[in-house]
Design a protein around this nucleic acid. Structure first.
Lengths: 132, 132
DNA sequence: GCTCAGTATTGACGAGTGTCAATGTCTCGC
DNA sequence: GCGAGACATTGACACTCGTCAATACTGAGC
C-alpha cells in the first residue's frame, strides 16, 4: 500500500459507497522533505481535483463567506446578493464545492444550507505544507 | 488597510518592481473563524491565482519532484523523462510555477535549475488553514 | 565562427470551464 | 389543489488552458 506520509489523522476511508474515491482527510502530502518520494499520477490527480475546486475567486469567496457565517453555515439566499452573480451560477459553484468535499448541503424547508467541512479543508492545507 | 488576519509573517511587500502585485508570503486567510470577515474580490483573486498554479496534476508532480530532489532543486532534464510529457510542456509548467512564486529559476551553464520556495508554499497552506 | 545540446517561445488545436437565460423541481402557505 | 418562492438542472456561448510540433534562443566546446 506504500505507506507514505499523509495529511489528516482521521483516515475514514470507507465513507459513502456512492463516491468511489473521495478520502475526506486522506490526501498525500505534496512536497515532502528530501527523503520523501514524489507524488504519483493518481495522488497528484486526487490533490489537484480538490485544489481545482478552490482555485477560483468566486468559489473562494463563497467558501470564506460560509466559514465567516454564524455556525459556519449559510444558505444560497444569503450568498447570491453579495457575490453579484446569477443564482444558477452560485448554485453551480456550491455543487462543485460539495463534490470536492469542502461543503455539506442540508435542505431545511425551502432553503438549502451549506456547512463548512473543516477536516477536508485542513487536509488540503496539510497536503501543501512546506518541507522542513 | 483593513488589517485582517494574514498568513506568513515576512510580509515583504516591496519585492520586485517588475511584478506589481506578488506578495510572497502575504496572502489573506481564506476561511477565518466566525468573527473574521469574508474575502474581498481582490484577495480572492490573488489567492486563486496561486492556487490555479497548483491545481494541476502535472504541476503538482513537478513541484513534488523538485521538493524531493537533493537540495530541493532540479533541472528540466531530470523532470522531462519521468513525467512523460514533451519538453515544451514541462517548460511551460515550470514557468507557471515560477510566475506563481512557488519556484525560483537559476541558469547554470546550459541547464536551468529550479528551486522550491518554501515560504510561498507555506503561505498558501496557511491561507487555507481551517477555522478554529 | 560553427555545431550541438539544453531551454524557451510561438502558433495551433481540442478539451475543459464560468457564466447566464430558460426551464424544471420541490416545499410552504393559502 | 394552486400559486409563489427557493433552489437545481439544462443548453448554449465565450473564454481559458494543457498539449504538441516547429522554431528561436543561448551557452559550451571545437
Amino acid at each position: 500500500m506504500t505507506t507514505t506520509t499523509r495529511a489528516g489523522g482521521g483516515a475514514q476511508a470507507d465513507a459513502q459507497p456512492a463516491r468511489p474515491e473521495l478520502p475526506l482527510t486522506d490526501l498525500t502530502v505534496c512536497c515532502a522533505p528530501e527523503s520523501g518520494s514524489a507524488l504519483s499520477s493518481e495522488e497528484a490527480e486526487q490533490l489537484a481535483a480538490v485544489l481545482k475546486a478552490v482555485a477560483e475567486p468566486t468559489r473562494l469567496r463563497l467558501l470564506s463567506m460560509v466559514a465567516a457565517s454564524a455556525g459556519q453555515e449559510a444558505c444560497v439566499c444569503d450568498l447570491t446578493e453579495p457575490v453579484g452573480l446569477s443564482q444558477p451560477t452560485i448554485s453551480h459553484h456550491m455543487k462543485v464545492l460539495v463534490d470536492a468535499g469542502l461543503l455539506e448541503r442540508e435542505k431545511r424547508g425551502v432553503w438549502a444550507y451549506y456547512r463548512l467541512v473543516p477536516e477536508r479543508l485542513g487536509a488540503v492545507a496539510a497536503a501543501l505544507s512546506p518541507p522542513a
